[in-house]
Write a protein that binds this DNA or RNA. Sequence first.
DNA 1: GAACGCTACATGCATGTGCATGGGATGCAA
DNA 2: TTGCATCCCATGCACATGCATGTAGCGTTC
Lengths: 139, 139
Amino acid sequence: MTDFDPDHDPAAETALSEQWRALLARHALTACAIDRELGEAFGLGVSEFELLERLQEFEQEKPGGGERAQALANTVHLSQSAFSRLVARMEKAGLVRRTHCVDDRRGIYIALTEEGRERYRKARPVHRRILAETLGPEV
Amino acid sequence: MTDFDPDHDPAAETALSEQWRALLARHALTACAIDRELGEAFGLGVSEFELLERLQEFEQEKPGGGERAQALANTVHLSQSAFSRLVARMEKAGLVRRTHCVDDRRGIYIALTEEGRERYRKARPVHRRILAETLGPEV
DNA sequence: GAACGCTACATGCATGTGCATGGGATGCAA
DNA sequence: TTGCATCCCATGCACATGCATGTAGCGTTC
């Protein structure tokens, strides 16, 4: 709420500003590269890949039949509505499967399909290579 | 083009992946906060503020009548088309002014209006406060 | 158990974005 | 001059996103 800092420090302000610009630049560079390469090769965007990765991780922890949507939505930095549509797209693409919970029929479980696991397995090395290329050089 | 690294190093791969996740999280947190607060208070988004800031910086360097669009587009991490529309929105809002170059009539100059300078002056402290709140705590 | 509020997800709508393309301006070569 | 490739910006289109709202299920209170 305070418009200008009580303890105004120009040097700290400049440092923060440059940190933010660097973050913006790295984010744009990497996200753009992922969208382009994974999009062309596997039909995946940044969010799609992130979701596949989360599902794969959850699957390793407990091999049950998927994970609650709510638990996943928080991990991909999307609004609730955007997440809902992301899952819908990926279900249509055959990468995940939605099933209503039996104990709480408001919620849904989201599980990888075999195709989803396979797609992730193939896309992962490309994703990691892009990270190495764009994040690796600490410019 | 190489699908999997010649020098495969699981530890380095994990480190890169976590670095990317942290970057995604920080970007989402900060960008979202900026969009919300600057949007409510000043009708500005992340890109709008960035452009105002670049224009203000260029203006200080050489107080001439603006900057070439091409030179600015590279600094805000937008596609050429998105940048074109960003400028159109901001011109409509009275924040910038477009003028055709006289020497090369393909290009345009983009200059701050008085309203644009004023809006930036007011928004800047809020922007910096958000950066301090979201980037400052090195979680 | 009826009514109410709350939660979990879906959807209508407005908007911002990237890709492909369009259209005018420039430069160069024949 | 004419023709052609290129550059700079604008625009049609498809699509992803966020906000607001809708809908169905849960829980509590009386």
